[in-house]
Design a protein around this nucleic acid. Structure first.
Lengths: 221, 221
DNA sequence: GGGAATCGGTACCTTTCAGTACCAAAACGG
DNA sequence: CCGTTTTGGTACTGAAAGGTACCGATTCCC
């Protein structure tokens, strides 16, 4: 049990493994991040051990060190990676002049889909866990994601209020209420792993309920 | 550096420490739990290391082993302890026949106070973290806390609907929406440590906003 | 008051895991 | 085609933490 698979038996096995190809920087980096993402979901941890990541992604500890500068760097990169594929969905396809109900439905649907997905839950756990050890990371995350979405939603409500469609004291508070209602109880159930990901039908039903209640609640009278 | 403080220098120091009194089972157990609770807040971890707990509470590793049977037992006990002082507040002073608005205000106020407190945040982190390693614990927690509160709220809404005060399709869904709206965005900000605990005034303002929107949203027309 | 049971304290063992060093092999460049 | 650079693999090191054993002291009970 010395070591090595390649120089193992013959001088050049020539066909055993189809050559454990060596990857370029970018590829290795992507592979490591993907492995970390998958494992964090499978093992339900914020971030897996380096050994586990390497085992799946290939490469070596050296790869992680040169790519990310250590585990902290990997955390940052992983959070950025997951955020990057989840957060933008919250802000796309909405502008402040579209029909209010349509905008709310769109926003709610995007939020539920993104946040309740496996990756969304993993992202929550990751950012929650080191909100203390790295407050700056938490602040950055919030600003890029929830904070930005909330601001957009508040703008939409503001526009609707200007058109006389709704009557609320504070659009920012109302936006917070709406996003909270969208998360509702489902988010808790998902984080605690009490239920599987939502089906499309469940999402639709929930979104409808939420939007109906909210629109009636803030309607101008 | 052999060991011992007591038999250290003199045969009986007689006045150095006021005697490191020996505690009974119950006292030691309580001291350990209290130390664990405090440290989990201070260090912002789900559960501190045994060494840290012992250092503060006194006793020894043996105490933890005999009292709780190890770290897992301590986790259970700690969760039960925190839950026991937070969850009951959610169900007290409400019954299904009281005025709807008053009931909602009471419910919302209790929820915000309990959940956004330091201990509430700690509890969230604790239960979230091992929802995978111990699904049964998560289920038990949910049933005793959020699930029970949600059921109570649904009953209240059901009664109000029977009285013709509100018109909703599904009271359980509406209850989930309400509790979600109560958590709103504040819960996220608290968990991420982006803001300090809420003042009484902030709680009042938030509760008012939420109850107003919700009552209008579900009112019978 | 003396013996037995229990509790407190320390040391040790084991595991896990991040970080680092070092060696071997592959890709690259002249 | 050979040397340099980069990349992959393994092993070692040290720290952190949980579990366990053992010794001494205290308390309880007969």
């Amino acid at each position: 049990m010395q070591h090595d698979k390649r120089s193992g038996v013959g001088p050049t096995p020539a066909s055993a493994t189809p050559k454990p190809r060596r990857l370029k920087h970018g590829e290795r980096r992507a592979a490591l991040l993907r492995a970390a993402k998958e494992l964090s979901v499978e093992q339900n941890v914020a971030i897996p051990s380096l050994d586990a990541i390497i085992e799946r992604a290939g490469g070596s500890r050296r790869s992680i060190y040169t790519e990310f500068g250590g585990k902290e760097g990997l955390r940052d990169a992983l959070l950025a990676e997951i955020s990057g594929e989840i957060l933008p969905a919250l802000h796309e396809g909405i502008d402040r002049d579209m029909d209010l109900r349509a905008a709310l439905i769109h926003f709610a649907r995007s939020l539920v889909s993104a946040l309740m997905s496996e990756h969304g839950i993993g992202m929550s756990r990751l950012i929650m866990q080191d909100s203390f050890s790295s407050p700056a990371r938490a602040r950055t995350f919030y600003a890029k994601g929830p904070g930005k979405g909330l601001k957009l939603l508040a703008d939409i409500l503001e526009a609707a209020r200007a058109r006389g469609e709704i009557a609320v004291k504070d659009c920012a508070s109302a936006a917070a209420c709406f996003s909270g209602m969208v998360r509702g109880n489902l988010y808790l159930e998902r984080v605690l792993r009490l239920r599987p990901p939502l089906s499309e039908a469940e999402i639709e039903a929930h979104v409808d309920t939420v939007v109906d209640i909210f629109l009636e609640g803030v309607r101008a009278r």
